Amino acid sequence: MMLELEDNLTHLTLSPAFGGSIVNWTVRSSGQPLLRHTDQQALASGLPGKLGCFPLAPWSNRVAEGGFVNPAGWLALEPNSPLDPLPIHGSAWQQAWQVVRQSTDEAVLQLDSTIPFAYRAEQRFQLRDGRLSITLRVTHLAEKAAWHGLGLHPYLPRRPGTQLQAKASQVWMSDATKLPTELATVPIEWDFQRLKLLPETLVDNGFCQWDGHCLIQQPDLGYTLECQATGSDYYLLYCPPGLDFFCFEPVSHPVNAHHLPGRPGLKLLEQGQSAELGFSLQYSPL
Rank of each mutant, 00 (worst) to 15 (best):
residue 198 L to C: 03
residue 170 Q to E: 14
residue 247 C to Q: 01
residue 191 D to L: 06
residue 190 W to Q: 14
residue 173 M to N: 06
residue 162 T to Q: 02
residue 163 Q to R: 15
residue 188 I to P: 05
residue 241 P to F: 05
residue 203 V to H: 14
residue 172 W to S: 01
residue 208 C to R: 05
residue 203 V to I: 12
residue 172 W to M: 05
residue 243 L to Y: 07
residue 220 D to G: 09
residue 204 D to A: 11
residue 238 Y to N: 06
residue 235 Y to D: 05
residue 251 V to N: 01
residue 235 Y to M: 09
residue 172 W to A: 02
residue 174 S to I: 12
residue 161 G to P: 00
residue 248 F to E: 02
residue 243 L to K: 14
residue 190 W to A: 11
residue 243 L to T: 15
residue 227 C to I: 01
residue 197 L to E: 09
residue 173 M to P: 00
residue 168 A to F: 03
residue 159 R to H: 09
residue 206 G to D: 08
residue 256 N to M: 11
residue 167 K to E: 12
residue 210 W to E: 09
residue 227 C to L: 14
residue 185 T to Q: 10
residue 234 Y to I: 11
residue 203 V to M: 14
residue 187 P to E: 13
residue 196 K to S: 15
residue 215 L to I: 15
residue 207 F to L: 04
residue 211 D to P: 03
residue 265 G to K: 00
residue 179 L to Q: 08
residue 200 E to K: 12
residue 245 F to G: 03
residue 207 F to G: 02
residue 241 P to R: 04
residue 219 P to I: 07
residue 258 H to D: 11
residue 208 C to H: 05
residue 201 T to I: 10
residue 172 W to H: 03
residue 254 P to R: 01
residue 193 Q to L: 06
residue 237 L to N: 08
residue 227 C to G: 07
residue 263 R to C: 09
residue 169 S to T: 15
residue 159 R to M: 04
residue 163 Q to L: 04
residue 218 Q to F: 09
residue 166 A to M: 04
residue 258 H to F: 15
residue 254 P to K: 06
residue 186 V to K: 13
residue 241 P to S: 04
residue 260 L to F: 04
residue 245 F to N: 04
residue 256 N to E: 05
residue 178 K to H: 08
residue 260 L to C: 10
residue 203 V to R: 14
residue 203 V to F: 08
residue 182 E to G: 05
residue 202 L to W: 12
residue 162 T to W: 03
residue 265 G to W: 00
residue 176 A to D: 11
residue 245 F to H: 13
residue 183 L to A: 12
residue 237 L to R: 05
residue 208 C to P: 00
residue 195 L to N: 07
residue 185 T to D: 10
residue 219 P to T: 03
